[in-house]
Computed example of a mutant assay.
Amino acid sequence: MKKQFNRMRQLANQTVGRAEKTEVLSDDLLQIERRMELVRSVSHNAHKRLVSYLQGQLGTDTEKRHKKLPLTALSQAMQDGGSQLGDESLIGKMMDVCGETENRLASELMQHEVQIERDIIEPLNQLAEVDIPNILKQRKQLAKLVLDYDSAKARWYQATKSNNQAMAAKVDCLKDEMDEALNKVEICKDQLSADMYNFASKEGDYARYYVMLLEAQADYHRRSLAALEAAIPTIQLNLYDCTHKTVLLHSAGVGGKCGSCRLPL
């Protein structure tokens, strides 16, 4: 309680300019501190938007995630419609085949989102909500320790200048208190400096998350396009064969059913 009171009094004196304020961080470290606070803010915003970018449910297993995707619902609706219309319906046959393709697209999307969550969203959250806050917490602790040191130094200086015998008798005790406070400041400062420089050295790693996002998106779209390009020609050929046969046979006045789609001819 007394230490808290001394901190508040020292801070008040420094605020109005009646007391010196010890600066323990270099200009480089102060610049890193400002950068950290900004990186935390933009990383938090990027994390928030990336979470909203996902169509699946964050943190769920792959099977549940796949079931919750809109593409999966579309796939199921198409396949159900194909089953209801039956194999004798060309529309039903096309819906069934397209439904299978949509299900493959849903699988690709699910894998993509799992990768995004693992490799980008989780690391960004770790950076914004754990790593940087822990360093900033040390910074606040250092500020408190510096206040303790400044307060102890001020009380020691007053004692050395005092003519009061009682105060003079406390000089050695106050000197020890000041030295102890300074030692705590130095220990905290060294640890904080190491952590801040370590953060600065990893800025390239943090920037890499955004490159990985584009790479993952490009890979996902390539796989999805490959699935579509594999399915479309087969579907178009099947559709063309059935409709072409129907036109030719109707023109010739031939009845029956198409052997491919079972439509009446």
Rank of each mutant, 00 (worst) to 15 (best):
K3S: 14
F5W: 13
N6M: 15
R7G: 05
R7T: 10
R9H: 10
Q10V: 12
L11D: 11
A12D: 04
T15G: 08
R18E: 15
T22A: 10
D27F: 13
L29K: 10
Q31G: 11
V39F: 05
R40I: 03
S41L: 10
A46K: 01
L50G: 09
L50Q: 02
S52N: 11
S52T: 15
Y53F: 13
L54K: 09
T60I: 08
K64H: 12
R65L: 03
K67W: 02
K68Q: 11
L69Y: 00
L69H: 02
A77M: 09
G82C: 04
G92V: 01
M95A: 00
D96T: 10
C98L: 13
T101R: 04
E102G: 00
S107L: 07
S107N: 02
Q111W: 09
E113N: 06
E113Q: 06
I121M: 01
Q126H: 15
V130A: 08
D131C: 05
I132L: 03
N134G: 15
K140Q: 14
L142N: 03
K144V: 11
L145E: 07
Y149C: 11
A154D: 14
Q158T: 13
A166K: 15
A168H: 12
A169G: 14
K170H: 09
C173Y: 14
M178S: 05
D179W: 04
L182A: 10
L182G: 05
D190A: 12
Q191G: 06
K202F: 03
G204V: 13
D205I: 14
Y206P: 00
Y210Q: 06
D219H: 07
H221A: 14
L225K: 10
L225S: 14
L225I: 12
A226P: 02
E229K: 05
A230G: 09
A230L: 12
A231V: 04
I232K: 01
T234D: 01
T234N: 12
T234P: 06
I235M: 08
L237Q: 14
D241V: 05
C242M: 07
K245I: 05
T246F: 11
L248D: 09
L248A: 10
S251V: 03
K257C: 10
P264F: 10
